[in-house]
Design a protein around this nucleic acid. Structure first.
Ligand SMILES: NC(=O)c1ccc[n+]([C@@H]2O[C@H](COP(=O)([O-])OP(=O)(O)OC[C@H]3O[C@@H](n4cnc5c(N)ncnc54)[C@H](O)[C@@H]3O)[C@@H](O)[C@H]2O)c1
Ligand SMILES: NC(=O)c1ccc[n+]([C@@H]2O[C@H](COP(=O)([O-])OP(=O)(O)OC[C@H]3O[C@@H](n4cnc5c(N)ncnc54)[C@H](O)[C@@H]3O)[C@@H](O)[C@H]2O)c1
Lengths: 249, 249
DNA sequence: CCAACTTTGTGCACGCGTTCACAAGCGCTA
DNA sequence: TAGCGCTTGTGAACGCGTGCACAAAGTTGG
């Protein structure tokens, strides 16, 4: 619980907010989703710096390493509190701890992967998850040949057991890597099993209750966004050409 | 819209933006990135509908299938033109064609994958890319044991040949699935080989010249965003509990 | 202890994206 | 042809995120 440093955390921020909201809840909720995503990036950069023995860093340098501008970095960090030293910078270790706290990484989040095909295998074998506090604790598939087979050190269970196994192992994050037609049914089962968050690789729009958070990783969409930019550039080039523009450089 | 702003504005908002641009280019650029991403989703839903023999659909129904509200859908579609019929809806085939045109999918975009490990194998074998106009035309790795081996029907080439092979096969999109330390070097080579867009799976911030578009797929970040939401929910529950809130129902 | 310098933290303004609400437009029916 | 009902397309308002610019706050050197 949070009251170890009972400092007078005045409601300095957020003028115009409702006066009767708990400060902690408000602060957590007030962090824009985009900022949360960037905090995760800062965390990785900071972890790398810590391994290299860097103990302190200024916003200018850290922001460059994270690929954002320094004002945005400072604003993002301000959402989680004031942990910098003016005239100096930030202590790497302090930032790591605080970002981990805000992202809820102090608690372990067990993960399951459903659909142990090409992608599912890669995910199950990936060392980046357990290394960052996301132990893969269950795997599921329908394929009888896969059931009971160890993948990445975990035995594959049958999809019919999702509800039971997820409850037993307190899975909080479910990763869906099944073919698209199976995704919604799998999703429903995960929700029944008490899974609170879903990371979906299948190109389908999942329907879930309000209390479940879904994020999708959609490679086709990513490719098409890139394609759009290629097309836009080609258009621009054609237009520039047409209008007799001189090639710069 | 303001050609000549006052001199008191000393900050140029967008570097390199010209005041008078051709309408076509303007229209393309005017589409918000977020809208482009959704258009790709609409496209998939529409393709599915077309296969089911649906020929016409109203914004209300299409938006539900795509998981957005109908106003947003109509606004998004309005970016690409007016192809609906008031009182009726949209012709599925027309929308598919128009979205494909805007996303630049009328042209084929050759793709290469670098780093044929767990993830690279999955990507190389994935049927969803060629099926959507993104033929995988080259694979690269450093591992001598992999060079010359066919994966998903393509022979793996050596990373040292990236520049030559990418030029020869006119690769426009490069997918990076190497370990993090190798990503930047691979990226530089791809750029030298004329690749315009990069999809990066390695958890590193890539530095690229302005004319290259990068998108990253960062699973650790996705997981941490989910973790943040779990933590936020837990906080809320704790707060609600603490403040003596009555459980509804 | 003060002055000069460095860097944080944030108020503020701007611009983009989302949402609302409704006029315009189309088909259908009488 | 006129009237009715339905759905699109979009102007306008709103809200959120981003970037700027500077005061506040700390450090360092004299
Ligand atoms: N492979 C990729 O690189 C890639 C890229 C982007 C998206 N995806 C998406 O990820 C998903 C998986 O792709 P993949 O290449 O691994 O496919 P895959 O066919 O190799 O694997 C699918 C696995 O899911 C299992 N499965 C099928 N129905 C199931 C069910 N009802 N419950 C549980 N498991 C079930 C199958 O037995 C198989 O093991 C697909 O939706 C695909 O569109 C894959
Ligand atoms: N596997 C996953 O599910 C997963 C998930 C998220 C992110 N990632 C990221 O994707 C990347 C690849 O992951 P993986 O699990 O496939 O790793 P992997 O170790 O299985 O494969 C990496 C491959 O890259 C090759 N390689 C190494 N150095 C190279 C270089 N300089 N040029 C070209 N190829 C090189 C290796 O020979 C190997 O084949 C990593 O950066 C990882 O962090 C993987």
């Amino acid at each position: 619980m949070g009251a170890r440093r009972g400092e007078d955390v005045e409601v300095v921020a957020a003028p115009g907010r409702l006066p009767d909201e708990p400060a902690v809840r408000e602060r957590a909720r007030a962090i824009p989703e985009a900022a949360v995503a960037r905090l995760a990036v800062y965390l990785r950069v900071l972890s790398g710096l810590a391994e290299q023995g860097v103990t302190s860093i200024a916003s200018e340098e850290l922001s460059a390493a994270a690929g954002v501008n320094s004002a945005k970095l400072r604003k993002d960090l301000s959402y989680i509190g004031s942990y910098g030293t003016r005239g100096v910078g930030y202590e790497v270790e302090v930032l790591v701890d605080q970002i981990e706290r805000i992202l809820g990484l102090t608690r372990k989040h067990s993960v399951c992967v459903v659909g142990i095909g090409n992608l599912g295998h890669a995910l199950a074998n990936y060392g980046g998850f357990p290394g960052r506090g996301f132990p893969v604790s269950a795997l599921f598939d329908v394929d009888e040949d896969l059931i009971g087979v160890p993948v990445g050190g975990i035995l594959v269970s049958h999809v019919d057991d999702i509800v039971r196994v997820c409850s037993e192992r307190e899975i909080s994050i479910g990763v869906i890597a099944t073919p698209p037609p199976a995704a919604q049914a799998v999703c429903d089962r995960l929700v029944s099993g008490g899974v609170q968050c879903i990371l979906n690789f299948a190109p389908v729009v999942l329907q879930v209750p309000d209390h479940v958070e879904v994020r999708k990783v959609d490679l086709a969409v990513e490719m098409q966004i890139l394609s759009f930019h290629v097309a836009r550039r080609a258009d621009e080039a054609a237009n520039a050409d047409e209008s007799g523009m001189v090639v710069p450089g």
